[in-house]
């Protein structure tokens, strides 16, 4: 199963040097179980930092060169859209939850899924191929240590949870042998709406009481109509003071 791991621009919290995010190293570990030669994908000024992914188990790394601080999304979307149309399209795109030290919106996986029209599943701790072809069984981490097993149809984007198994140990020799392919950014193909907008911070109530992992009870709705489901969710959020109507 061809797997691509997205590598973000992470910074070491102590030295501020570019490094591989631990979560993405864990994603590489998950990818290595599915794919003999998992590939990495990074958009940024160079491979400093992310090349460590090769030492943690990636076999190759595509680096799309973009100036520092540039939004990586259009380049990512364009590159993945091209490779999805190729003869050997990636079946799975793995990513972390957010960058570490760069522009960390945490939105990249979602915006990317939207741009590519792929399903997205968050917080995977274990992956294995499903029984049917082109499916993937994902163990999803939920609050309070609960796990949920979900089967999804591929291709898909999956984000990795920090409770996934620790990364494969770093080996300098593997990093040295890994192939790095540099590309110029080509953003013309897929237009992406990257204006996530900015709002002033507003304190939200804590969800300790209401948030539970137990699915079921009065709030369980099996197979509702999408319109109905959206209405129920919005009603729930408003009941709990999480969303106030019209204020976002």
């Amino acid at each position: 199963m061809k797997t691509v791991v997205l590598l973000s621009d992470a910074r070491n919290p102590v030295s501020g040097r570019a490094q591989l995010s631990r979560l993405e190293a864990q994603a590489i570990g998950l990818a290595a179980e599915l794919d003999e030669s998992p590939q990495g994908l990074h958009v940024g000024p160079g491979e400093e930092g992310v090349s460590a992914g090769l030492g943690h188990g990636l076999c190759g790394l595509d680096v799309i060169e973009a100036p520092e601080g540039e939004d990586p999304l259009p380049a990512l979307a364009a590159f993945l859209a091209t490779s999805l149309k190729s003869d050997e399209p990636p079946a799975l795109v793995l990513c972390g939850r957010r960058g570490e030290g760069g522009l960390d919106t945490g939105l990249v996986p979602y915006l990317l899924a939207e741009a590519l029209g792929l399903p997205i599943l968050a917080d995977a701790v274990a992956l294995r191929p499903g029984e049917a072809s082109d499916t993937l069984v994902v163990d999803q981490a939920m609050a309070k240590g609960a796990r949920r097993r979900v089967t999804i149809r591929l291709p898909a984007i999956v984000t990795v949870h920090p409770l996934a198994p620790p990364p494969l140990p770093f080996a300098f020799g593997r990093m040295r042998r890994g192939e790095i392919r540099r590309h110029a950014a080509d953003v013309s193909e897929v237009p992406v709406d990257v204006d996530a907008g900015e709002r002033p911070h507003r304190a939200r109530p804590k969800l300790m009481r209401t948030a539970g992992t137990a699915s079921g009870g009065a709030n369980l709705h099996v197979g509702p109509d999408p319109e109905e489901a959206a209405r129920l969710i919005l009603a729930y959020l408003e009941d709990n003071g999480i969303r106030r109507y019209g204020q976002g």
């Binding site: 070491n12 102590v14 030295s15 040097r17 490094q19 460590a52 030492g55 494969l168 140990p169 770093f170 080996a171 300098f172 020799g173 593997r174």
Partner: peptide, 27 residues
């Protein structure tokens, strides 16, 4: 260490700190 990354589990941490911030204790 260099080819297999097969260092003892507890020794991975100082080596990772070395790579990240040049100090085995991560300071």
């Amino acid at each position: 260490t260099l080819e297999r990354g097969a260092v003892p589990m507890k020794a991975e941490e100082p080596l990772a700190h070395y790579r990240g911030c040049d100090e085995p204790n991560g300071r």
